[in-house]
Amino acid sequence: MKLYRDIFVAFFRSGILGFGGGPSAIPLVHKEVVGTFKWMNDDQFSDVLALGNTLPGPINTKMAGYIGYRVGGITGLIVALTAAILPTVLLMLALLTSFNQFKDNPRVQGMTHAVVPIVGVMMGVLTWSFLKKAKSGLGWKKASLLLIGCLICIVFLGIHPGVVIGVLLAGAFVLPEKKNKIEVHAKGKSESL
């Protein structure tokens, strides 16, 4: 029961604080899933994020569904999806009636515009943490070339990000991976993994 409560809390917090849509919720989900509850590591989270970006629909609910299922099975999936959409539903019901009265208010418009740089900073911090991990994986040169290549494809050539991510995922499965030999000493035996 504690696991389902934790799943609910994690996705409810990221849903209620993720004002500005999916991109603002991604770093919050990362903080909950990787930092607070440690259900996955950065590499696993980046895989979930990449997979979620290739599928249509809101990223927060896709990530909630997958992570909830992975952590708590079918019940975890239902709890995570409920927690992810419940803040939006409650806020829409509460604010829908008053929004029309205040939508032209300069303060409300200023708050809406102020969210954009905050989301940009949050996404930048998440990207920087992934780039730091790239040093131990691909290395700086390959990761930088990959980043620049993806940027050119998406921004300048107009290729959809889902296609770029799909090609990257396909490349990860096709290209051979270097196997690191790790010595495990158990009961006086040395095994290579």
Results as ranks from 00 to 15, higher is better:
Ala50Trp: 04
Gly15Trp: 10
Val115Leu: 15
Ile148Thr: 12
Asp47Thr: 02
Ser46Gly: 08
Phe173Ile: 13
Leu55His: 05
Val119Lys: 09
Ala114Leu: 03
Ala114Asn: 05
Ile152Lys: 05
Gly22Thr: 02
Gly18Asp: 01
Ala134Ser: 15
Met92Leu: 10
Leu96Gly: 08
Gly158Val: 01
Thr54Gly: 02
Leu169Pro: 07
Leu91Asp: 01
Ala172Asn: 13
Thr97Asn: 10
Phe99Ile: 05
Ala64Cys: 15
Leu90Asn: 01
Leu91Met: 11
Lys189Trp: 08
Val155Leu: 12
Ile165Arg: 01
Phe19Gln: 03
Leu77Thr: 11
Val71His: 00
Lys133Phe: 04
Val119Trp: 11
Lys38Ile: 00
Arg5Asn: 10
Leu147Phe: 12
Ser129Cys: 03
Pro106Trp: 02
Gly149Asp: 08
Val164Ala: 06
Asn41Val: 01
Cys153Asp: 09
Phe130Asn: 03
Ser190Asn: 14
Lys132Tyr: 01
Thr127Cys: 07
Lys189Met: 14
Val155Met: 01
Phe173Arg: 05
Lys132Ala: 07
Leu146Asn: 14
Ala172Arg: 06
Gly188Gln: 02
Asp47Gly: 14
Gly72Cys: 08
Glu191Arg: 10
Pro87Lys: 01
Leu151Thr: 15
Tyr66Met: 13
Pro58Glu: 03
Gly171Leu: 09
Lys178His: 07
Val71Met: 08
Gly65Lys: 09
Val125Glu: 04
Gly15Leu: 02
Leu17Ser: 00
Glu177Val: 10
Trp128Pro: 03
Phe11His: 02
Ala64Ser: 14
Ile7Thr: 15
Ile154Tyr: 09
Met111Thr: 12
Gly139Cys: 02
Gly139His: 07
Leu81Gly: 13
Met1Asp: 13
Gly15Thr: 07
Leu51Ala: 15
Ser24Gln: 04
Val33Lys: 00
Asn180Phe: 15
Gly15Pro: 14
Val71Leu: 03
Phe8Cys: 00
Gly188Ala: 05
Ala50Leu: 00
Val155Pro: 09
Ser98Gly: 07
Trp39His: 01
His113Asn: 11
Lys179Arg: 12
Lys142Tyr: 07
Asn60Tyr: 12
Val116Thr: 15
Trp140Arg: 11
Ser192Met: 11
Asn100Arg: 05
Phe99Glu: 06
Gly35Thr: 02
Ser14Asn: 10
Lys135Ile: 08
Leu147Lys: 00
